[in-house]
Structure formats: C-alpha cells, structure tokens
Amino acid sequence: MSDLRDLYQEVIFDHNRNPRNFGRLEGATHRAEGFNPLCGDQLTLYLKVGEDGRIEDVAFEGKGCAISTASASLLTESVRGRTLEEAERLFRGFHAMIMDEPAGEPVELGKLEVLAGVKEFPARVKCATLAWHTLHAAIEGQEQVSTE
C-alpha cells in the first residue's frame, strides 16, 4: 500500500509553506500560464534567459495544492543556471520518474526526487507535472498550457 508520508514529505510541506522564487519576474524573456482544469490550479512561470543561453532567473506565481506548489518551487531551484536544453532534459527525467517509466537517458534529478512518491498516487500526477508542462510551454514559446 502506498504510504501518505511517501507523498507528503517534510520537504514538500516546507516548499508549500515557503515557496521559493515566488512572484512576478520583471524582465522575463519567457513566460507561460499553466492550468489544471480538474482542480482549478493555475500558475504562471517566468524565465529570464541570458545571452549565454542559460536560465539566469526564474519565478512562478499562482495557486495550487501542496504538491503542485512544492513541485513548482523545486523546479525553480533546479533549473536556475541551466541551459534550456538541460532544463528540458530534467523535465523528461522528472516525467519518467513520476510516471514510473524508464528514463531514456541518465538524468541527475537531485532534490526533485522527493516527489518520487507521486507515482503511487495517479490522481496527483498532474499536480506534480503542471509546473513542468508550463516550463516546457514557456520554452516552446506557447503562452498557455492545460494538463487536460
């Protein structure tokens, strides 16, 4: 049986209570809005990509459940300083972990692994991936994305 504590780890509560990089980002080069119509969650993700192609700054705002808020907060911490290609690779690795599928390539997920428990909770997969789908949309230049 899946254990609730595998899903709701202390780190997740911490990021939910004090989301990192929360708020608007002035001078963003990329921006997208993500919706999860099922639960009404909505977030906006901002990226500021430097001349060297690296993510100099990143922020998000919006409201969601503990899983989606913590996931967005963790995302901002883990993509900062990376190239867009590296960020997309992280998304693929994160997605594979959540869906419990083999990753096509080795990816160091680092602290994103605290969300591994989500794979036992199919109803919550979309909460955990909303921010990442939004990141992907921002990189692709789409303005809006919905998880349905």
């Binding site: 609730l4 899903l7 709701y8 099922l38 639960c39 969601g64 459940c65 503990a66 909770f121």
Partner: peptide
C-alpha cells in the same frame, strides 16, 4: 488545498470529492 484534503481523506478510507 481541497486536493490535498481529498488525498489524505482517501488514505483514511473516506471517499469525498475534491474539485469544482
């Protein structure tokens, strides 16, 4: 968030709906 409420309730065997 209601979704967190719903998941935790479910783990206690209590089925409610969380959503719009």
């Amino acid at each position: 968030h209601p979704h967190d409420v719903g998941t935790i309730l479910d783990h206690e065997g209590v089925a409610v709906r969380a959503g719009h």
